[in-house]
Design a protein around this nucleic acid. Structure first.
Lengths: 203, 203
DNA sequence: TATCTAATTAGATGATAATCGAATTGGATG
DNA sequence: CATCCAATTCGATTATCATCTAATTAGATA
C-alpha cells in the first residue's frame, strides 16, 4: 500500500505555483531547463531545485541531448497518486458503484473466455488484447502472480513478464497505467487488489 | 476555469501528514475536534488550525451539536480538484480515449431519446434517470443552460434548478458530483465543457 | 447569571522551503 | 587539451508554516 509519506510528498510537489506552472509548460511538450527558467523569469538554479522535487515523485522525466537536458511530463504518475488518495478515503459504498454491480455473472463468463482465448495451454500470452476490458482481464491475471508487498527491480519485473510474453516493456507500462503496479524511483511494487478495483471504476 | 491558486491551495491542504491523518480518521465518520486532537496527540488549537486549511478548500464540512463541533469529509470535492489538474495537463489524445470514440452516432441517438422521454413538452424534468449514462445526458442538458464564467449563489442556483424540477438539492448535488459545477465557499460556478468531457472519461 | 465545555484566536518559536548569486560539474566541440 | 554551454551544487537570505501555551469566545446548562 502506498504510504502516508508518499502521498504527502506528492501533494507537496504540487503545492507550489512555480511547479504547477512548470508542469503546464511541459504539458505542451518537452523543454530544456534554460527555456523553463526564461519563461518563468527564474534563475536556472531555481528550476533545478523544482525539477528535483518533481522528479522524486516521478512527475517528470528527463533526457539528455548534447549539452541540454529536456524535461517532460510523466503522464502515468499523474493519475497514479490521485487514485491512491481516493482509495484511502473511499466510502464503503456509493450509489454509483452499485449501478455497475449486477453484471458479475456476465463478467465472470467474459473472464473465462478471455483467459482461454488469449493464453496458450502452457500459460503464455498469445497477444495483448486491444479492447480495454479484455486487456484489464489479462493484466489482472498476470498481476495476481506477483507477490504483494514485495519490491521488484526493473530487471526482475522484466524477467517475470518475459515468462509470459516477449514485449515486457509494453506490459510493464500497461501495468503502471492501470494501477496494477506502482513505481517508486527504480523499484516496482504490486498494488493491493482494492486499488485495482477502485481504479477500474475510476478510469 | 479553475485557476492556479485554487489548485495550489488544494495541494497545500493535502501536503501535510497531520492533515492527511485527519482525513483518514474522518473517512470513518464524523468526529469532534477534541477526539481528533486526542487520537493524533495534538493540541485542540492545532486541530483548529488544520481544520481551517481543509475547510478553505472544501475538503471537510462541520456541524454543531451542543458544545461540540463535528467534522466530516466532503467527498464530492476530493474528486473535483483532481480532475481539474488532469484537464490542465491532459495530452491532446491518448490510445484509451480513442477506443471509446467510435460510438458517437449511437450516443447521439441515445441523447435524443433520453431528452424526449425524460422532459415534458414544457421542458420540465419528469424524473431523474437512475441509469448513469442517461443521468449524465440530463445533467448536461441542464448545465448547458447555465452561463459559463458567471457565479451563482446557492439561492440563485436553487431557483434555476426549480424551473425544471422540484428536488433542487439532489440535482445540485449531482451537478457537483459529476463536475458540471464547482463550488468555492458559498459560490457555485459552471465548469467549462472540456472538463465535463474529461470527467466523463475519468469517472 | 454563573459556570462548564469545546473551539477559536493570538502570539511566540522552531523548522521547512523558495529563491538567488557564485562556484562547480559534466558533456560536447574546436 | 582548452573552451564553451547548460545544469547542478553550495551557502545565505527570507518567507511560510506547524505547533505550542495562554487567553478568549460561543453555546449549553444549572
Amino acid at each position: 500500500m502506498m504510504q502516508l509519506d508518499k502521498i504527502v510528498n506528492y501533494h507537496k510537489a504540487l503545492a507550489d505555483p512555480t511547479r504547477i506552472r512548470m508542469l503546464i509548460l511541459l504539458a505542451e511538450g518537452e523543454m530544456t531547463g534554460q527555456l523553463l527558467a526564461e519563461k518563468l523569469c527564474l534563475s536556472p538554479a531555481t528550476i533545478t531545485h523544482h525539477a528535483a522535487k518533481l522528479r522524486t515523485v516521478s512527475l517528470i522525466r528527463e533526457r539528455r541531448d548534447k549539452n541540454a537536458i529536456f524535461f517532460s511530463l510523466d503522464h502515468y504518475f499523474l493519475k497514479q497518486y490521485e487514485s491512491s488518495l481516493q482509495s484511502l478515503l473511499a466510502r464503503p459504498a456509493t450509489t454509483e458503484t452499485k449501478e455497475l454491480e449486477p453484471m458479475d455473472e456476465k463478467n465472470d463468463r467474459l473472464k473465462q473466455s478471455v483467459l482461454r482465448n488469449f493464453f496458450t495451454a502452457e500459460g503464455k500470452l498469445k497477444h495483448i488484447p486491444a479492447q480495454l476490458k479484455k486487456k484489464r482481464i489479462v493484466l489482472q491475471h498476470l498481476a495476481e502472480k506477483l507477490e504483494e508487498g514485495r519490491s521488484y527491480t526493473e530487471k526482475e519485473l522484466n524477467a517475470f513478464i518475459k515468462q509470459f510474453h516477449e514485449d515486457f516493456a509494453t506490459i510493464r507500462r500497461e501495468f503502471i497505467m492501470h494501477a496494477y503496479l506502482y513505481r517508486e524511483q527504480e523499484v516496482y511494487e504490486r498494488n493491493p487488489r482494492e486499488m485495482w478495483e477502485r481504479w477500474e471504476t475510476l478510469s
